[in-house]
Design a protein around this nucleic acid. Structure first.
Length: 281
DNA sequence: GCGCCATGTATAG
DNA sequence: TATACCTGGCGCA
């Protein structure tokens, strides 16, 4: 269930669980066995994320690059291990890290590989600013957007423009900012981009805090509006994501869907109209 | 139990 | 644009 907040959280939690610890590294499934042998018994220094990419540094100078893809997961089980042993792996565990008081299992990742410093730099150089990172430079994203004829709904999914936004945050932030997803990047005004960026910073930080994507403002929560809470596998409250054919929580119009950037986009055709009629006095 | 779909991306055609 | 990756939850028999 990975957008940028998931990876940021993972980096934080991996660091909390293992940083400075000597760890047992293995690949029960076998596909990362050679690298795991190399890392086994080393001290895990730290973990860091950039967008949807995760990097784990070891004291011996090795770095593991992980990308969860669409359905990868990296589960950290903290707490003292019984007799110093982690339980037998369940399913296809590509990478297991065991420390004195925690173990972590990686499954289904699209990438799990050792990378050199150069390869790591190349990966990060290809990524736009990550709203969760303190070193993020939003101007880099703005320079791409303001000269692009591509729809903003497509640009937000382009990790080289802006890193960490996925299909849920794309739909939700555009709804919150009342921007038509089909609007070409170059037609956005700077103030709109700034609002979009600032909203992403807040939304992603909230995602890190609560561990799920929750985008609904206080006045639109189920409690505030007297509707049933959302029942869904990602758990959080959203405005439009996967709500096609349902009524917009704000205006009641029917939420629409279309494929953009190869993924299902959702939006409210009324709240996100490009040309809103002005009230005539 | 089965088939579909999914918070993603790389690569082939 | 289509497909591969290869996991898990859900709706439906």
């Amino acid at each position: 269930m990975p957008e940028g907040h998931t990876l940021f959280r993972l980096a934080r939690d991996l660091s909390a669980a293992f940083a400075g610890q000597r760890v047992v590294v293995s690949s029960p499934q076998g596909r990362f066995a050679d690298a795991a042998d190399l890392l086994n018994g080393d001290v895990l220094e730290s973990a860091e994320s950039w967008g949807k990419h995760l990097f784990i540094d070891f004291a011996g100078g090795q770095t593991v690059h992980i990308h969860l893809g669409l359905y990868g997961s990296f589960d950290i089980h903290a707490g003292d291990l019984q007799a110093g042993e982690a339980p037998a792996p369940v399913g296809q565990v590509r990478l297991r890290i065991v420390g004195p008081s925690a173990y972590a299992d990686l499954r289904g990742a699209t990438a799990c590989e050792l990378v050199t410093d150069e390869q790591r730099e190349r990966i990060c150089d290809g990524l736009g600013p990550d709203p969760l990172r303190s070193d993020a430079d939003p101007d880099r994203a703005w320079r791409r957007i303001k000269r692009s004829r591509q729809p903003i709904g497509q640009l937000l999914m382009d990790q080289s423009v802006l890193a960490g936004v996925g299909n849920v945050y794309r739909a939700e932030v555009l709804f919150r900012q009342r921007i038509d997803p089909m609007r070409p990047g170059h037609t956005l005004r700077r103030a709109q981009f700034d609002a979009l960026w600032n909203d992403l910073v807040e939304l992603l930080a909230e995602g890190v805090r609560v561990g799920r994507i929750d985008t609904v403002r206080d006045e639109h929560t189920p409690e505030a509006m007297g509707r049933a809470p959302r029942k869904d596998d990602h758990g959080g409250e959203v405005y439009v994501y996967r709500r096609h054919e349902q009524a917009c929580h704000v205006c009641g119009a029917t939420v629409r869907t279309a494929v953009l950037a190869g993924r299902n986009l959702f939006w409210c055709p009324r709240c996100q109209r490009r040309f809103r009629s002005r009230a005539v006095g």
